[in-house]
């Protein structure tokens, strides 16, 4: 599949006499293929918004290469801007204009036909409130307006930074359906979000960034599989048999963690080995289940941002690829 968005070795450094030098982006790579819904994840201050702003020409990079829809940016941004809809960070609009005025002015600036305004207002559910001033809108309504503004151009690539922020549960579900429908219609969607459950549900692939570097990327299932612990949970018909089972499994060099009503096994190549070993001792399994990981646990592991009791993690305390004592790089399906 052709790449709609390509970033290679992107660097952005902020220099301050007082605070010294900070690498917001430190050789960041990213690739999004056409027709996908791609999740862009990272802890606060990891460089997500800086990446999007740089990609959209708002920030000048210090190095690296970027391309949108096959065109090198920022040089070709004026050419591709009409095909890229984006909202970056929280929705920001002139508060005294109505939603319709706001979209009308954007449509005017972008040579978009006025009929498209009603289409997007309908799409995001703001049709009946379009005449009201934006300052009277809730955060969720502003978010809907932001998505409407990004959809106004009927773009080939849609970049949304935290689109579900402030939405009610119904709105989150509507947004999820909208993203899927857009992707099915051929639009490529890049979503930056902290609602990892949503990302796992709607995204085909993800990129995880930490301290300005990519720490994981690839199809969601692949990233999850690569970070699966391979743990297996075993329950027996009789709880009193757990010590015997522990002895049998340990003897076969399987690591066992005992719990009051079950055992957690790691280092199991094939679950069939477990049933065979236990059956040999006359023990019968009532549950044998591989323990699945979710995106949130992978994210917390990769970025080293899981909360630790008694510690207050600071914003920049997270992991980067190859950092000392940190998880290594995670390979994905796209190489590089």
């Amino acid at each position: 599949m052709p790449a709609v968005l390509e970033i290679e070795g992107l660097r952005k450094t902020y220099k301050s006499r007082r605070r010294g030098t900070r690498n917001a982006l430190d050789g960041f790579d990213m690739r999004v293929e056409a027709g996908q819904v791609h999740g862009f994840l990272g802890p606060n201050g990891s460089g997500k918004t800086t990446t999007l702003r740089t990609l959209l020409g708002l920030i000048r990079p210090n190095g690296g290469r970027m391309a949108l829809l096959g065109h090198e940016v920022p040089a070709a941004l004026p050419t591709v801007a009409g095909q890229v809809g984006a909202i970056v960070e929280s929705p920001q609009f002139f508060p005294h204009f109505s939603a319709r005025d706001t979209l009308s002015l954007l449509a005017g600036a972008g040579d978009v036909p006025a009929t498209r305004i009603d289409e997007v207002l309908e799409l995001v559910g703001l049709r009946d409130r379009a005449g009201e001033r934006v300052k009277t809108y809730s955060l969720g309504m502003k978010q809907r307006l932001a998505v409407a503004s990004a959809l106004l151009k009927n773009p080939k690539l849609l970049i949304l930074d935290e689109p579900a922020n402030g939405l009610d549960p119904g709105g989150i579900r509507e947004m999820r359906t909208l993203m899927r429908n857009l992707a099915e219609s051929g639009m490529t969607v890049v979503l930056s979000s902290h609602i990892l459950g949503e990302i796992q549900l709607i995204c085909d692939s993800v990129t995880i960034i930490s301290l300005g570097r990519r720490v994981a990327f690839g199809p969601v299932e692949q990233v999850l599989a690569q970070h699966s612990s391979g743990a297996v949970r075993v329950r027996l018909e009789a709880v009193t048999d757990l010590p015997v089972a522990t002895e049998a499994l340990t003897g076969a060099e399987i690591r066992v963690t005992g719990h009051p009503d079950h055992l957690m096994l790691t280092g199991v190549d094939k679950p069939a080995t477990v049933t065979r070993l236990l059956a040999e001792r006359g023990l019968y399994v009532s549950e044998l289940a591989p323990v699945a990981v979710d995106l949130e646990s992978v994210f917390l592991e990769l970025t080293a941002t899981a909360p630790v009791p008694g510690q207050h993690r600071q914003v920049d305390q997270s992991a980067t690829v190859g950092g000392a004592g940190q998880p290594g790089a995670t390979g994905g399906g796209w190489g590089a």
């Binding site: 801007a81 920001q92 609009f93 002139f94 954007l106």
Partner: peptide, 18 residues
């Protein structure tokens, strides 16, 4: 000034990156 402080300028530059 209001365009800058309310984010309108950034929105506009996403549409017309010149």
């Amino acid at each position: 000034g209001a365009e800058w402080s309310t984010g309108g300028m950034m929105n506009l530059l996403l549409w017309r990156p010149k």
